[in-house]
Amino acid sequence: MMTRQSPGPDPQKNVTPEGDLQVSGRHRNLSPAQVAAMEEKIRKIEFAISLVLRVGVILSVSVIAIGLGVMFYHHGDYTSITGHASYKTLTSRSTPFPHSLGQLRRSLVHGDGRGIVVLGVFLLILTPILRVAVGVVSFFYEKDVPMALVTLFVLVVLIASFFLAGL
């Protein structure tokens, strides 16, 4: 994905139809053997990223589903198709749900379904951040320093956003 578009593995992309190297920031002349080695690395990185994403997504959906299950198990009246229980009481602003890490911890200790759902949502929020983190590592691995620094900056801003929010 990101890596296939990098300059290293595909020197043709820097070449104009006339065969001249284009005026680009950096050039790297790699032998066919080096290109093959690079592509092998890139395949591994791609596999790692896709694995991280899939595991993250599946894990968060599973945790959310368990949370919903626990919530419905504890509140039998929620599960009827028709009845007096209304979703409006649950979505109204007065219904409490965890919205700080401390509350989340407490609600998880009590085995509260809502807390488990919030944990699953948290895992989902972490997947893009994890993806950026994997990006930093793989750009450094490819020795693409400018892109690695750009990605690192994005990661720092992301982490800062959670601290600034007061988490």
């Binding site: 968060s60 959906v61 959310i64 589903a65 949370g67 919903l68 919530m71 979703y87 649950l90 979505t91 219904t95 749900f97 965890p98 919205h99 700080s100 379904g113 809502r114 807390g115 759902v117 919030v118 699953g120 949502v121 989902l124 929020i125 997947t127 893009p128 951040i129 993806r131 950026v132 994005v154 801003v157 992301l158 956003s161 959670f162 600034l164 929010a165 007061g166 988490l167």
Partner: peptide, 28 residues
């Protein structure tokens, strides 16, 4: 959009805007 949303997700969480009973079916 995922990365951008993650950058403001912390603020939304602290402000109590992420309601689990709405977020669960939406996310899945």
């Amino acid at each position: 959009i995922g990365v951008t949303a993650a950058a403001s997700a912390g603020v939304y969480f602290i402000r109590g805007q992420i309601d689990p009973i709405i977020a669960a079916p939406v996310a899945a």
